[in-house]
């Protein structure tokens, strides 16, 4: 076991945590403002695919990243309109966006490249070290940024008020829907960047359903982290650790069934949700509207 905990494992944990962290911080913003967001998975897929398409046509992975973030933001804007302005059921809206996020890339891949399974290879975002994309430090730097925003700024106080008691916020003249729109769209941008990390940060192409449930794991990390940026970071690292351990263990040929190892991160998610979630406390105004009429 001595050479098991190597730099390699550490890089693997960081790489695995990065997309989760982007999406989770996005989800956290959205939920702290009071909008349930199960659509992170869909936003990630939109971001991952559009980042590749953007890079392919614009020949610049940074422009590709921008495209990915914008596409996911557009998806999030739809979620925002449904959930905030039209007061649709936030779970149903999220499911719809997840389906959309899964379907649009497949449709467009067929139209653009006449293949539905994967895109051609494109240029990747630069690396800062072997196997470590430039987006990795960005994700981790975002944790204190989001924390500061929520806990130490005036807009942060208002976001929290919108999420905890939208009527109260509205009664002192805070435009709850404005803050919610901003947060939901920010969640799209962040989840989109998380998705783009998978396609042009880690790999250099998009394959169908390449997020493999990471959007949901990110959501679980938000809940497990008790809607707190630092807790969410810890939860993300835990899931990423389990995932990286699983890969390394398989590669090292540890005598545990490969299927069991594969299931490990998901099992951990389940345990976290059932066991620890009882002690967590969601924003009191989650899914509630500022006025009842």
């Amino acid at each position: 076991m001595g050479d098991f905990f190597t730099v390699e494992l550490l890089t693997a944990v960081l790489r695995t945590a990065t997309p989760l962290l982007f999406a989770a911080l996005g989800g956290l913003l959205s939920e702290r403002s009071g909008v349930m967001n199960i659509a992170l998975e869909g936003f990630m897929l939109l971001g991952a695919f559009t980042a590749v398409a953007g890079t392919y046509y614009l020949h610049d992975p940074f422009l590709g990243l921008l495209c990915g973030a914008l596409a996911a933001a557009a998806g999030a804007a739809i979620h925002a309109v449904w959930c905030i302005s039209l007061r649709a059921d936030q779970i149903v809206a999220g499911i719809a966006l997840n389906l959309l996020g899964a379907g649009i890339p497949i449709f467009l891949m067929q139209r653009l490249w006449e293949q539905a399974g994967r895109t051609p290879s494109v240029e990747k975002l630069p690396m800062i070290a072997s196997g470590v994309s430039i987006l990795v430090p960005v994700a981790f730097l975002l944790v204190p940024v989001v924390w500061y925003l929520l806990e130490r700024t005036k807009p942060g106080l208002r976001i929290q008020a919108a999420g905890e008691h939208p009527q109260a916020a509205e009664s002192v003249g805070i435009r709850v829907s404005g803050y919610r729109y901003a947060c939901v769209i920010a969640s799209g941008v962040l989840a989109g960047i998380g998705g783009a990390f998978l396609s042009i940060g880690d790999l250099s192409l998009f394959t169908r359903d390449m997020t493999q449930g990471r959007g949901f794991i990110a959501l679980a990390a938000v809940i497990f982290g008790n809607w707190n940026p630092l807790g969410t970071l810890a939860a993300t690292l835990l899931f990423a650790g389990a995932q990286a351990f699983q890969v390394q263990a398989q590669a090292a040929g540890v005598g545990i069934s490969a299927d069991l190892l594969l299931a490990l991160p998901y099992l951990l998610t389940l345990i976290a949700i059932t066991g620890l979630v009882r002690h967590s406390r969601p924003p009191a105004g989650l899914g509630r509207h500022p006025t009842v009429d």
Binding site: K154, L157, R158, Q160, A161, E164, H165, Q167, A168, A169, S171, V172, G173, I174, A284
Partner: peptide, 18 residues
């Protein structure tokens, strides 16, 4: 009451008029 339970007295008082 239009108060945010999880906020402190001060946070509730200044909310919207920070």
């Amino acid at each position: 009451f239009m108060l945010v339970d999880r906020f402190t007295v001060t946070e509730n008082v200044i909310l919207g008029f920070e």
